[in-house]
Design a protein around this nucleic acid. Structure first.
Length: 110
DNA sequence: CTGGTGACAAACT
DNA sequence: CAGTTTGCCACCA
C-alpha cells in the first residue's frame, strides 16, 4: 500500500523524541513534503488523536502556534514542561526549533 | 473559475 | 530583537 502524505506526516510527528520539539516545516520536510508546513498544521487542526505528540510541534521560531490566551496554548505548555522542555513567554527555550533534526542528533551547534 | 482562510516559513525592514 | 511582506499549498463558499 502506498503511504499517504498525511500518514507520513503523522509518522514524522510521532518520531519526535520525548523532550524535543520540531517545527511544522521541519515535520513536513521529514515527511517528504518540503514546503507543506501549512498542510501539517491543517492536519493537526483536524486531528483528534490524543496519543499523537502534537505538543512537540512548534513554529519555526520556537513559538507556540496558539494564541497565548487559548486553552490549547496552556495545555501545550504544560505538556512540554512535563517533558522537561523549558517554555518561556510562549516560546521554547534551550532547544531551538532546529531547521533539521540532524543537528539535534549530532548535537546542536551554538 | 475567483477569492478568502489557516496550529506556516523565509526574507525583509 | 520584533513587526511586516511575500510565497506557499490545501480546502471551501
Amino acid at each position: 500500500m502506498q503511504t499517504g502524505a498525511h500518514d507520513r506526516i503523522l509518522a514524522a510527528i510521532r518520531a519526535i523524541p520525548r523532550g524535543q520539539v520540531a517545527g511544522y516545516g521541519e515535520v513536513a520536510r521529514r515527511a517528504g513534503l518540503p514546503g507543506r508546513a501549512r498542510m501539517v498544521a491543517r492536519l493537526l487542526s483536524h486531528n483528534d488523536d490524543r496519543r499523537l505528540p502534537w505538543h512537540r510541534v512548534l513554529r519555526s521560531d520556537g513559538r507556540i502556534a496558539f494564541p497565548a490566551d487559548s486553552p490549547q496554548f496552556a495545555e501545550q505548555v504544560q505538556r512540554l514542561r512535563t517533558e522537561g522542555v523549558r517554555v518561556e513567554g510562549g516560546r521554547v527555550r534551550g532547544i531551538r526549533a532546529a531547521p533539521t533534526l540532524d543537528e539535534q542528533v549530532w548535537g546542536t551547534p551554538g
